[in-house]
């Protein structure tokens, strides 16, 4: 047991080192690219071309294969950023700051995709591009948080204090997001704007579920891939004048 723990601790220490991570990600990226593209293409291809047409919505429902993974990924990225923010605040691990910096634009782009795909899906099915529903509103707030984090980062010239500032904002946002979600839920029950119900409990058929699961897996792996690449680029940017980078 202690052996595994020891291995984990050495892995954690290695993770904090720029040269190690740079080399490791260089090796890992082609493999991750290979494994991530397979479920993504199979999932999307299966979903768009071969899965059965929904009897109620017709072919438009196929947006689900992009919308649901994007929405799921956009929230998970914020959770991982929160963990990184805690690590960065307590242990001052530089890699955690790099992680937040690289993941924020990725999270913003997938939240944007979730919002846009949701509204494009809503137009033919509910007859409106946007309704002030609880879930849509909290996704919009999440998007604004990502934008605030990105703009806060870019307002600092010193990388180290930028990392700390962004960690503080990420943590405060993470504490507030549940409150916002809950209050938006209350607000939504207070002013029920229309008879449209978003959260209909529908049983999804297996032929639709399998490609959906595949494309969710594909999205997560793509996030992993783009995160690794963005962190690698960020390390290179910060360490361009260091000896180890020059000697590569």
């Amino acid at each position: 047991m202690s052996k595994i723990l020891k291995k984990f601790i050495t892995f954690y220490h290695k993770l904090g080192s720029y040269p190690w991570f740079y080399k490791f990600s260089g090796i890992a990226i082609p493999y991750v690219a290979f494994i991530s593209l397979i479920p993504l293409f199979i999932g999307l291809g299966w979903g768009i071309f071969y899965s059965p047409t929904d009897y109620k919505q017709g072919d438009v429902y196929r947006i689900i294969y992009m919308h649901v993974p994007a929405a799921s990924v956009s929230q998970s990225i914020y959770y991982t950023m929160t963990i990184a923010a805690i690590v960065s605040m307590i242990w001052r691990m530089k890699m955690a700051g790099i992680f937040i910096k690289s993941m924020a634009p990725i999270g913003a782009s997938f939240t944007f995709l979730a919002l846009i795909s949701g509204s494009i899906w809503g137009q033919p099915t509910w007859g409106t591009w946007w309704i002030w529903d609880a879930r849509l509103t909290s996704t919009l707030v999440l998007f604004i948080f990502y934008i605030a984090i990105i703009s806060l980062y870019s307002s600092f010239s010193e990388k180290k204090s930028a990392d700390q500032a962004v960690s503080i904002l990420t943590l405060v946002g993470a504490v507030n997001l549940p409150i916002i979600k809950k209050s938006v839920d209350w607000w939504n029950t207070l002013h029920q704007p229309s008879s449209i119900k978003l959260t209909e409990s529908s049983t999804i058929s297996l032929e639709m579920l399998y490609p959906l699961l595949l494309s969710i897996i594909g999205f997560y792996l793509i996030v992993l891939l783009s995160g690794l690449m963005a962190m690698r680029a960020e390390i290179a940017k910060r360490e361009i004048n260091k000896e180890w980078f020059k000697s590569l």
Partner: peptide, 27 residues
Amino acid sequence: LSLGKSSILGPAIVLPLSLPVLILGTA
């Protein structure tokens, strides 16, 4: 957070965070 920085950062941080207060206050 935005000491001596651009002023748009302030609203971008404050407004989304104060959504619950706005909702509960008007409610």
